[in-house]
């Protein structure tokens, strides 16, 4: 009798709905702890280097992971929430205590200049606009050579070969 009631069309609909709802019930959050493996690390307000710095984390400190976005991880440390580059942290207890080796040369995203008022004060310091005005004021400055030097980039593959051939540590 009970079995019969459970499989009635209306009851089935209820079961189905309940199952769908279960999918949206958040599981208890598992707190992931990371260890900072580089010195002089900063926490940023956004996941990019042009954002303002909100704090510092010392080498060996444990931070709580909140979320990850690409190469950046939002963490909590000493009551301060901020973003840290993933190269600077390793899972706690993984035994990593020294600086990790970057497999590629990290090339941060191009400058993102935000115009909205919310970040205006943090982003309106020494910007490309200031550089442009300064450049105009000082034509003797060799900015075109600076651009040239910034174009000196080594290929990741070439660097790997260079390291291997020279008997250096990979």
């Amino acid at each position: 009798m009970v079995r019969h009631l459970l499989f009635r069309p209306k009851a089935l609909r209820c079961w189905l709905l309940a199952s769908v709802h279960l999918l949206f019930i958040p599981l208890p959050a598992r707190c992931e702890i990371l260890t900072v493996v580089l010195d002089f690390q900063l926490l940023y307000s956004r996941p990019d280097f042009s954002s303002s710095q909100v704090g510092r984390v010392p080498l060996g400190a444990n931070v709580e992971k909140i979320q990850q976005r690409g190469d950046w991880i939002e963490v909590m440390y000493g009551g301060t929430k901020g973003w840290i580059h993933s190269v600077a942290v390793r899972p706690a207890g993984s035994g990593a205590t020294r600086a990790p080796i970057i497999p590629i040369i990290v090339r941060p995203e191009p400058v993102k200049e935000r115009k909205d008022d919310e970040v205006a004060l943090a982003g309106k310091g020494f910007t490309p606009e200031v550089e442009a005005a300064y450049r105009q004021q000082h034509p003797e400055m060799q900015y075109q050579l600076v651009d040239m030097v910034e174009s000196f980039v080594v290929d990741h593959e070439a660097l790997g070969v260079f390291i291997q051939e020279g008997g250096l540590r990979p």
Binding site: V87, I101, P108, F152, V153, L168
Partner: peptide, 28 residues
């Protein structure tokens, strides 16, 4: 020469306490 400097320099920079900067390291 500049390519050589950048190869040596990049090999070193990735082992430093600041392996990444806003636009990376460049040597000349």
């Amino acid at each position: 020469l500049n390519t050589y400097l950048n190869l040596v320099g990049q090999a070193l920079a990735r082992r430093s306490t600041r392996p990444y900067t806003f636009k990376g390291y460049h040597f000349a």
